[in-house]
Amino acid sequence: MMTEDSSADLDFSKALERVGERDPNAAAAKAKEQLYSLDSVTLNIAVTGETGAGKSAFINAFRGLNDDDDNSAPTGITETTKQATMYTHPTKPNVRLWDLPGTGMPNFKANKFLKEVNFETYDLFIIISSERFKENDVFLAKEIQKKQKRFYFVRSKIDNDIWAVAKTKKFDEQQVLCTIRENCHRNLKELGNPKVFLISSYDLGKYDFQDLVDTLESDLSEYEGFVLVQSVPVCSLAMLEKKKAVMEKFIWLAALGSSLGAIIPLPLLSLAIDKTVLTSYLISCHNFLGLNEKSLIKLSERMNKPLSQLKSAIKTPLELAVIDKLSIRPCTATAKPVKSLDDLLDAKFLLTSFVNAAQAFKTTYTILGGALNDMVNDMRQVLQAAGLNE
C-alpha cells in the first residue's frame, strides 16, 4: 500500500518528469519559465462572413467589450470593414481577433478576396451568418479546408430570431432553435454537415457560446486552449467552472516553479518557498476569473446592477488580500481589515520550511488549489449578485 509520503514523492516525480528534468532546481527553473511563457502564447482568430452578419459585435463580445467602448470594433447596418483589421484583447494582447471584409458586398470578388487573405496569419476561422449560410460561406470554408486550417460556423443574432416569434401563441424556444439549426445544415450539407453554433453577441451566457469555447479549446494545443479560455468573459456559472478547470491544470506548474532558488541541496538547511511566483499566480487567477475591477464594472453595466453590490459579494480573506495588494479598496463600509497577501501566505505555510522538495511541492499544490476554490466561490457569489444564476 502506498503511504502518504510515497504518494507525495510520486506526485513530485511526475512533475519533474513533465518538465523533463531530474534535478529539482533545474525543474523549478524550467517550470517557472513555462509558467511565464503562457503570457507569450499568441492566438490569431479570423472572423469573416457576409456584410451585416454581426462580425464586429461578436469580436467585441468575445473581448468583453460593449460596442461603444474605446477600442471596440465599429458596428453598423452597413459594411464597416474595408480591410482586415486586428483587434487585440484588452487584457490579453497576445489574443488577436481579425475582422475580415464582408463577403456579401455587391463588388465582392472571391478570387481577389482569397489573394488578400493571408491564411498563414490565422490559427482558425469563424464564419458568421445572421441568416442562412450562403454560397460564399461554403466557398470560403472549402478554401480554408484546402489550407488545412480550422473553421467554425456561427449563426449570430439568435436573440433577434427569438424576439421575433416570442409573442406567438405556439412559441417554443427550443423548436425555434432546432428549426434554425436544420436550416443552417441544409445549406452546408456539401461540407459534411459541420456543427453550427447559435450565438447572441449581446448575451453570451445563452445558447451555444459555451459549446463553441469548449470545441475551440479541445481543437487547440494545451497552451493555446488555456489562453483562449483565459480571454473570454465570465458570462455564466458554466463558464466560471470552465475557467476553474483550465486553471487547475497549471497549479502543478506554479507549485513546482515556486521552489526556484529555494531548494538548497545541503544538509541542515530548510527549504523555503518563492512567494513571488505564488503571488503572481494568485493575481492571474484574480484576473482570469473576472474578479478584477474592469471586469466587475463591465458585469455591472451589462446586468444593470450597482458595482458596490457586486463587490460586496467578495468576502474571502485571500481575495480581499489580493484586492488590497492591487490597491483596489472594497466598495463596502462593512469590509473587515485582512492580513496582507504575504502574511496570509506565511500563515498558510506556517514557518515556510520543509523537510524535502516533495513535501514543499505537495503543500504548495494543496494551498494553491484551496486558494483557487476560494476565488471561484467569490466569483460565484458575484455572478449570483448580478442575477446570473445559471
Rank of each mutant, 00 (worst) to 15 (best):
Ser7Leu: 15
Ser7His: 09
Ala8Met: 14
Ser13Leu: 15
Ala15Glu: 00
Arg18Val: 09
Arg22Tyr: 11
Asn25Gln: 15
Ala28Tyr: 00
Lys30Met: 12
Lys32Gly: 13
Gln34Lys: 14
Ser37Arg: 13
Leu38Pro: 03
Val41Ile: 11
Ile45Trp: 03
Thr51Gln: 09
Ser56Asn: 10
Ala61Asp: 01
Leu65Glu: 06
Ala73Leu: 08
Ile77Cys: 10
Glu79Met: 11
Ala84Thr: 10
Thr85Asp: 11
Met86Thr: 10
Thr88Arg: 15
Arg96Pro: 00
Phe113Thr: 09
Glu120Ser: 10
Ile128Gly: 01
Ile128Trp: 04
Ser130Ile: 05
Arg132Trp: 05
Lys134Met: 11
Glu135Met: 06
Asp137Gly: 05
Val138Ile: 10
Leu140Gln: 03
Lys142Leu: 09
Lys146Gly: 01
Gln148Ser: 09
Ile158Tyr: 00
Asp161Trp: 09
Ile162Leu: 10
Lys169Val: 05
Phe171Trp: 08
Asp172His: 15
Cys178Gly: 12
Glu182Asn: 14
Asn183His: 07
Leu188Asn: 00
Glu190Met: 08
Leu191Val: 03
Leu191Trp: 02
Phe197Asp: 00
Ser200Val: 02
Gly205Val: 03
Tyr207Asp: 00
Asp211Cys: 11
Leu212Trp: 02
Val213Met: 07
Val213Asn: 02
Leu216Thr: 02
Glu217Ile: 07
Phe226His: 05
Phe226Met: 08
Leu228Arg: 00
Gln230Asp: 11
Val232His: 06
Val234Tyr: 03
Ser236Asn: 10
Leu237Gly: 09
Val246Asn: 06
Phe250Trp: 08
Ile251Gly: 06
Leu268Phe: 15
Leu269Glu: 07
Val277Lys: 04
Tyr281Cys: 13
Ser284Lys: 14
His286Thr: 03
Leu289His: 04
Leu289Gln: 05
Lys294Asp: 13
Lys294Ser: 15
Leu299Ala: 10
Leu307Val: 09
Ser308Lys: 14
Lys315Ile: 11
Lys315Ala: 10
Lys315Val: 14
Leu318Asp: 06
Glu319Lys: 11
Val322Trp: 07
Ser340Thr: 15
Asp346Cys: 07
Phe349Ile: 04
Gln359Tyr: 07
Thr366Phe: 11
Gly369Glu: 00
Asp378Glu: 07
Gln381Leu: 13
Gln384Arg: 15
Leu388Gly: 06
